[in-house]
Nucleic acid binder design. Structure first.
Lengths: 231, 231
DNA sequence: TGGGCTGATATTATTGACAATATCAGGGGC
DNA sequence: GCCCCTGATATTGTCAATAATATCAGCCCA
């Protein structure tokens, strides 16, 4: 009974490291899914109470989410949920589309069976979450799918940058995660992607990856400019 | 004599904000210019003494430089100067080249005279620093030149990502900032860039921007693989 | 003599108290 | 009545003490 690597009480549950991650996760979720509206203030004391965490962890979380671009921090003033104008959204998507296109073109076709298998498993998981209407689950499996797909490009730095932009657009895409129509389209496109991986048409794959972003992009742009919920 | 906005003693010199920036700057410089070798440990207490700063600022600086990718932090172990393998360097440059090419292609040609004027001023400054052999100055004016150039692409997010990768490759390029031959080549290429901005050949400009990185890239790769200082 | 326990040491992680700062409301001068 | 000054308040920024953790050398035991 050595237990040199399990210090203190072994039933202490979430270690400090997990606690930090948990605060970030919950704050991120609260922002992404609109529980904190864009522009609303994120007061440290409030968040400390809400998440039952110390100021240290809350601030760390705010720093992280500022880095990710979904929180805006002004010195000696405080943090707010960041809002992006239509122009900014277009610029962000422009880079995201460029990165996605380049990454897709770098995926060697036909892709190895192991990749196809992996994506099919993720896609199955994605569909399951979609049926359950679990927003968080949908988002996570969707991201896992794209991450696995683009990782096949072979350049982890490119994937990392792409992921940064995916995170940046997350608040814009969140509404679509709950949208029946968008969800169905997304599922279909995922399946076509898997099919294309079996072939040799890199250009078609790249084009589809770009196309895949258009629905949520225009939907979001319509929402913030027009103000009409649905036509 | 209101002085509502200059609290405490108005001769207090660097405010806290500046002090933080200064620690980051000095630590970054110590790493970039090789005063801390890759892999060497960055102990908080040591840095506190070296920069005369509190633990708070030193840690903040380590976080920042970890984000920038030049410091590696392991939980409960400490920070070290990050080292990149040849493969990683190639991957990093692959993304940087892609971003630079795309940004260059997006610059409307011929460029407005104001941009050309601005770049010529920066280039003049750059040459002045080069003649003075001021490493820091060379680096800063060089970055300012490229930043101004790529900013003309019109997409600040693309520029920001490009800047991230420029910072990432900074330790690899640093040796070349002191290199006579590399410096001369760099100066010539800058001038050709300015010339190309007056024309209409976007492709040539993009190609030159990519070419512009090759010298320091291969030099660095030679250095870490071969081990020979100079042929 | 080698493997692994055990304590000493080095280092980072966390915390809560305190300081600095911005914001806003209320009052006095013009 | 309007503007600026002033103090009160809310909020973030900084610090130094303390806790947690990993690392390493020395020692015991097989």
């Amino acid at each position: 009974m050595t237990m040199t690597s399990t210090p203190q009480t072994e039933v202490s549950g979430p270690s400090r490291e997990d606690e930090q991650a948990e605060v970030i996760r919950r704050l991120e979720e609260d922002i992404i899914f609109g529980r904190f509206a864009p522009g609303s203030r994120l007061v440290e004391d409030t968040l400390m109470a809400r998440y039952g965490a110390s100021r240290h962890f809350v601030r760390q979380a705010l720093f992280q989410l500022e880095r990710r671009g979904i929180v805006l921090r002004e010195k000696n003033v405080g943090a707010t949920v960041r809002f992006y104008s239509a122009d900014e959204v277009r610029q962000i998507y422009e880079v995201r589309e460029m990165l996605a296109r380049q990454a897709a073109l770098m995926i060697p076709l036909p892709a190895p069976q192991s990749l196809v298998d992996q994506l099919e498993a993720l896609q199955k998981e994605y569909c399951a979450q979609a049926d359950r209407q679990d927003l968080r689950g949908i988002h996570e499996t969707n991201d896992a799918f794209h991450l696995a797909l683009f990782s096949a490009c072979g350049n982890p730095y490119l994937v990392s940058s792409l992921q940064d932009y995916m995170n940046l657009t997350l608040p814009m895409r969140a509404k679509n995660l709950a949208d029946k129509e968008g969800l169905a389209l997304s599922r279909r496109q995922h399946e076509i992607m898997i099919d294309l991986l079996r072939g040799r048409d890199s250009w078609a794959l790249a084009q589809l990856c770009v196309e895949h972003m258009q629905y949520s992009k225009s939907d979001y742009l319509d929402r913030i400019s027009g103000g009409r919920d649905k036509s």
